[in-house]
Design a protein around this nucleic acid. Sequence first.
DNA 1: CAAATCACG
DNA 2: ACGTACGTGATTTGC
Length: 886
Amino acid sequence: MEDTQMPDHNKKILIIDGHSILNRAFYGLPDLTNYEGLHTNAVLGFLNIIFKIIDEEQPTNMCVAFDVKQPTFRHLMYKEYKGTRKPMPDELREQVPLIKEVLTAMNITIIEKGGYEADDIIGTLSRIADKDGYKVVIVSGDRDLLQLATDNILVRIPKTKAGGTTVENYYAADVQKLYGVTPVQFIDMKGLMGDTSDNIPGVPGIGEKTAGKIIQEWKSIDNALEHIDEIKPPKAQKNLREFADQAKMSRELATIKLDCVLDFNLDDTDLFDMFNDKSYNIMKRLEFKSMLKRFDAKPDAQELKPEITVINENSALDTVRDTVIAAGKAGMYVISDSDILYGIAITCDARTVYVINSMSGVSSDAMSDIVRDIKTSGTSICIGDIKSCLNDMDFSECDTNVLDVGIAAYLLNPLENSYNYDDISKEYLEVMLPSEKELTGKEELNAFTFISDNFLELFAYKALVPLLAMDTLIEKLKGTGMYDLYMNVELPTVYTLHDMEKRGVRVDRTALEEYSHKLESRIKELHDSIIEYAGKDFNINSPKQLGPVLFEDMALPGGKKTKTGYSTSADVLEKIKNVHPIINDILEYRQLSKLNSTYAIGLGSFISSDGRIHGTFNQTITATGRISSTDPNLQNIPMRMELGRLIRKAFIPQDGFVFVDADYSQVELRVLAHLSDDSVMKNAFQNNIDIHSTTASEVFGVPIDEVTPLQRRHAKAVNFGIVYGISAFGLSEDLGISRKEASDFIEKYYDTYKSIKTYLDGQVKFAKENGYVKTMFGRIRPIPELKSSNFMQRSFGERVAMNSPIQGSAADIIKIAMLHVNIKLKELGLKSRLILQIHDELLIETAKDEVDTVRKILVDEMMHAADMTVPLEVGVASGNNWYEAK
DNA sequence: CAAATCACG
DNA sequence: ACGTACGTGATTTGC
């Protein structure tokens, strides 16, 4: 091999026109926002474009030029320069610093200099690089830059077309081919034709066509002026003569400078280490999932990757147990899928992870024994997700040394999407680890794959990360005042939820099927009727097809609403249901389709071989501390409409049992009364007076026994509104009244409940100062939206600040009640078990001889779950199915 | 994979 | 002047 250094001929620089590409990206992509409400579409589009070009060009160097908000020589020459340009929309403006942040993190040079436009910087730089032997590629959305093309300098113009991005490429010859002029003559052409977007005047009456012809023939404006008498057509000749100075000035305005004084070195634009922690974190924050794929090389993973010792014999277990107990703290992961237990990964220091293989010489008894020994030794066992391993491990709410990392991280920031080992590692260990998907891809866990390197590495992280992160998490929980909440509420709740999942709820498959058949025959009738009214066949389930049918073909009123088309949502249709009978049919059709697909058919598919549905309760999903329910969602079984409510007849207790159902009455308003210490509202609850009637009486100034049903309905809506963080608009929409009336209601409401107003204002103020709000039990909800520059986002943040302490405290209360009830049932050795929690309601499958005891436990524990200045009222009912028990 | 719709609290 | 109620999850369309 020759010992000569590579000459610079092999260097290639990519010069990006920052604002122009950002602008293209902004208008090319639909609006996107991340969880903070930050608009991100332009940044994402920008990155997509430049990565596409980087992939194609493989440049060695790169930089991005931006304009600076400062007049340039062009403004001095011609004060109307760029005068007609519209200001950037706010959604785009806020993305300018964002893209700069991303580029900086990726070590990509940003060039901006007062007095120069990006074009001039690009022009100058392209010439310097060219002279230094670089290949040069300029990327811009702006055709003005075509004047910079030469045989060595390529100008690329990306276009966003129907999904994909295509790029037009121009060397000097391509410019010539397209416009019939050289890149330099292109400037003269622009001098003649002007440019509306930059407000360059040019010569009146001369457009692209004429300008092209003149320059093709005469090569330049100066030369054309010398032969002014020969210019054709006559109109152009006359105008050019008259506006000769303006043409010359326009040419100068349009000329990109090639001799700016730039105080930087080409070597500064070397591309290196674009994919690092910092850029990864920003991309993650912006929620650019597709970008994260580019961060495959994770240098840090090596640092944390421990030795993995696979244990295949019982005899080796003693050492493992002794080592772990001596350390006093362990990280553990149970390796299993729904049916099979493969083993466990366990570690007590960052150097070694033991993977105990229960598919080999290790007996499952021996494995259970060492876990039990470790547990009873008092060793802290740190686990990523305790609930997921409870089918194989007999931990209980009494084992206070078994700790859950996911739940700790959720309490510290409930807004994250997931609390997997890689999330925890990034956030609390500041180490980037490959995700589960990256490690094992599509490979499934089975007896063979489970001891493959990739799976072993995965298990190692799943055991190790909890061990390493737990101390930090506990410290932070203490620091934020949430340690008690964690230990006394969240951790025991894990076991309660697992108990409910394991028990499941019995559902009568035949009843669901019969119900479905009834629905289907009515759905068919409605379908035919709707098609007949419409006069043509179409898919009623498609709002995109339904909209035009209703508002164009049938010309019904109330059309147009969104950018994508007509809204056909129930509240829109509700308003025009008297105009045409098709509307009622559609509403009924929708209702029945929903009941059938989501409930009758949907639920049926979840019934297990034991005749019961074992859904999943999630403890780390909601922003407020509520539980959520999935696969299926058992917290949204129909209730409000009689027809839907009938589904509840299919939810039945096992033989010899009945259902006992208990729910709180207006917990959220009671919580509000307590938190705000409002004497008027507290008084109503203390004296057990109907709260909505009280509100109506106060707000409308009538005696409580003269409140009309309408007044009560309005008052009820206002009470709800208050809990949601009221707005006059929202209330007026809900009640179908004017905004003025709605805001009058609100004003009178605050007049009545003065302390509530004070309290809510106080929450918003607290949130603005601290960035979060707290529940009665110290649970935190961060509100990043309050820092947004966007009015709408900020208003949302304010509503959240008002709502979260209320919804969250209510969630805390029922969680406490729920776990007390569950523990009591077990303590008393009852056969009855908790099976569902629906936010303010608990359902217990109750042995017939335990009904009285269970009713008492429910009422007792629910009423006394929290110490408040207003009583908590609980309603109880029982029955042979869920329909009867409500 | 996102948007629209609608079920619940 | 802005454009909205708070918190969830499942299904269906259609790009």
